[in-house]
Design a binder for these strands. Structure first.
Lengths: 340, 340
DNA sequence: TTGTACGCGTTATCAA
DNA sequence: TTGATAACGCGTACAA
């Protein structure tokens, strides 16, 4: 059951067994065979717990994300896993259930040595003052990299990998403006999501740059869910001055918007254009297929994970944010504004 | 950094600190305060690795699933997490990338003491012979519960929680038959998925019971993906004798089928009825909304996780499969066959 | 109520 | 090339 029994059975010392396990080339072939035979005989499996304990390393990385089952995050995770496999790490996923508090709950996993680092793919809102607290307690920061999300002032010092959400959203909005739209609404996410906040900012920037007004009730909250977006859309449709286009802060909400618009008997894009963000796999099979802004999801996962591992291994080269390119994908949910 | 330093600073023994941490009521209040003060001062966090090592328990459970980002599994996981939080377990997710081999890879996590148990939500195909192997090596089975999937002979002895896929699929097929359909096609999943295999069986049973023939080319593989289902659907549409209804082994594939049918200029349900399985959150916003068979996803997660924890704690009451109810959800993607 | 001392399974350091 | 042995940080008899 333990290394001792293997040693006894093989007639060698525990040190030799350990060596055989970790650097076999240091063990004479004849001894190797004896040890392996003993291992097979008693069905020995090394206790990884003891090993990690001894080594002071878990090779476990915690990925914090708002919601498993998010098709976009799935793509990001694919990149994360790729690197993890390559570098010998395991991934522990924590789903925040779309709540964005309790930063400490996750960092504690590192401080208590249960994990080596944290990949944060979720919104950590205002980030309270754990920062200051840590400082005063003499604690150091855990290895941490941010993916996707925009960065608050408190987090700016951490490495991050993401698209330029402001610019991307501005580009999407511009596209609508080029199509002749002027009454453009925006369905935002949760209030405390920095990410959708940035996208909203991009939208506002583009509108401002084009000299277009944004009516007070053109920006509504969609709660990052289909149902939330449906409610938001319903509000927009009831407006006196109905918008001719809707920018949804992500595709999930765009799906809800599309459905609600069609349920109201209106046509997309003839009556209303819709644009999303993320390019999830469902975007191309909606009816009509959704115009959206794609992020290089897998690349984001891969690069952020790689940076995290570098930090853990003490090879943290550079700091600060890293930006990856986005891309506007034009499908059929957007069209020139109909003459009226 | 360690319990020793806390002890030293507080002027007590390490045993007292340990006691304070684990059963504070055994420590005098005054001592408690001293210890807590020391803990605060040096920012001590217990080393969970050492603790788990000592206790011989990790409080970590591995959930093996085919694909994160599956909206159905998200619901299952919600139930899993609920129980995990309640019982003090952490969840480690392993994504098989929809591959269904390598059972040992996961059980090893338990044998190497990195996890206490395994919740298997993925297909383990034919299960090779690790079974026999284990037996001969005198190894015992790891705590393992199966959710969702049907059970092979090799796995029958493990507890499991799932709907009766055969009966459910038969019910769905029956419903189509009641609507007057006779040429009913079936889009299956991957060949090695037991789950979709069972659903196919249900379909075949129902067809047989109704005295309906199943043409050779009415059963096609959809690979459990949107794209796979689109290809499969394309094949079906090119058939001489076009089916009047398609049963998809899950909703994801049904989404692909719907899209492909509409792309071909046909109408659902007027030209072809479509029915899915799982009732994912997108099912009600497709165009038309999808008729499907709902599983109590969260309940499945909850119950299977609860059973697993019981086994780990040695309270394994009963064994074998446990069945939860399914429910046919009728929406608008199915209709009576049009007179022709 | 508290302290001493041992052991969990492993790896690393030193000698041999 | 191998063996003896000291850690790693914690929990827990047992003794005080």
């Amino acid at each position: 059951m333990s290394i001792k029994q293997v040693a006894k059975l093989a007639g060698v010392s525990t040190a030799t067994v350990s060596r055989y396990l970790n650097s076999p080339e240091q063990v004479k072939e004849k001894t190797r065979d004896k040890v392996q035979a003993a291992i097979d005989k008693i069905g020995y499996a090394p206790n990884a717990l003891a090993r990690n304990f001894r080594r002071g390393k878990t090779s476990l990385i915690v990925v914090v994300l708002p919601s498993i089952g998010d098709p976009f995050l799935e793509s990001v995770m694919r990149g994360v896993w790729k690197v993890a496999d390559e570098l010998g790490y395991s991934i522990l996923i924590r789903d925040t259930q779309s709540n964005s508090h309790e930063f400490d709950e996750y960092t504690d996993l590192v401080f208590s040595k249960q994990a080596d680092g944290i990949l944060l793919l979720a919104s950590i809102s205002p980030f309270s003052e754990p920062e200051a607290q840590r400082g005063s307690r003499g604690k150091t920061h855990p290895p941490l990299v941010l993916g996707l999300e925009s960065v608050t002032r408190e987090l700016i010092r951490f490495p991050s990998v993401r698209v330029d959400n402001v610019a991307a959203a501005a580009e999407g909005t511009d596209y609508l403006i080029q199509l002749g739209h002027q009454r453009i609404a925006f369905i935002a996410g949760k209030r405390d999501s920095l990410l959708t906040h940035d996208r909203e900012q991009g939208y506002r920037n583009a509108m401002g740059a084009a000299g277009l007004e944004i009516a007070e009730d053109w920006v509504v909250e969609g709660e990052q869910t289909i149902d939330g977006a449906r409610r938001a859309t319903r509000q927009l449709l009831q407006l006196q001055q109905r918008p001719s286009a809707i920018f949804c802060a992500n595709d999930e909400m765009a799906l809800g918007a599309l459905h609600e618009i069609k349920s109201a008997g209106l046509k997309v894009p003839q009556d209303i254009s819709v644009i999303g963000f993320d390019d999830i796999r469902y975007a191309e099979i909606t009816d009509p297929p959704l115009t959206t802004i794609a992020q290089p999801a897998e690349e984001i996962g891969e690069r952020s994970m790689r940076r995290l591992c570098q930090i853990i291994d003490g090879n943290s080269d550079e700091r600060g944010p890293e930006t990856v390119p986005h891309k506007l994908i034009v499908r059929n949910s957007t069209a020139k504004i109909s003459g009226r």
